[in-house]
Amino acid sequence: MPGDGTTTYDTPIGWRAVGRYGLLVLVAALVLFPVYTTVVAALKEGNQVLNNPLVPDGFTLRILAKAWDEGNLGRYLLNSGVVAVVITAAQLLTSVLSAYAFAILDFPGRTIMFGVFLATLLVPLEATLVVNRRTVDSLGWINSYQGLTVPFLATAFGTFLLRQVFLTLPRDLRDAAAIDGVGHLGFLRHVAVPLVRPTLGAMAMLSFLSAWNQYLWPNLVTTESDMYTVQSGLKQISEARLDEPNLVMAGTIIAAIPIVVVLLIFQRSLIRGLTSGAVKG
């Protein structure tokens, strides 16, 4: 996905080019092999799955349609979409606010508070799941969008990332704005946020991906099919329908398609997001 036309230090011609293409094709085939077998299976009729699993045999959309109907996949995709969008939007909002507070504002206890924020970065999800499940249950949020989203509406990572960018704002800029009577909210909206827009895009992509891909948590807080996300729904389908592997594979494909589309559209943001955490040497 990274863009073309960068490092061009030799121009292969003839056999070298053929060799490299050959290698590229071979490696690409290996990488795509699991996807290929999945697609082949999903397009086969059920009783054909075990015969020549490498070779497409006929072409039927019946299994995909069946997976869609029986698997309640439309509902799962909707739930995943809602959950991922809500989490992403909320994380952007809460992170912008807290990053602004830490970068621009000066208040007593700022350093300690920022330390607390950073410390939450070190706590893995695994250490909090048991208690969080109880909290969500006692709030009556099992099988609800609140239960699926609220624990993830803020992120210290986003705060940290945006704070780094806000810190590059010249102090004079804020002082001048203050003299002009621009409040913090106005300054945030008209100066600070436009500045971090590319970082926001990158962060949005990361938040969306990780919210969409959540696995353990949705399994813990949903017990009704109508509230499953794509990931917990897939787990459920795979456990209940092992007798029809091609149905499970069809479900897998349907579950993967939306995220592929989203990534294709926002690939620039994605790459920037993935590299944004990377160390600048």
């Binding site: 809460t94 706590v123 909290t135």
Partner: peptide, 24 residues
């Protein structure tokens, strides 16, 4: 700046306290 900081930090702080620090 404190009042502004408080309301700006509150959303994150509430979530992180209730769902990260408290459960830990």
């Amino acid at each position: 700046d404190l009042p502004t900081a408080v309301w700006m930090l509150t959303p994150s702080l509430v979530i992180l306290s209730v769902f990260v620090l408290y459960p830990l």
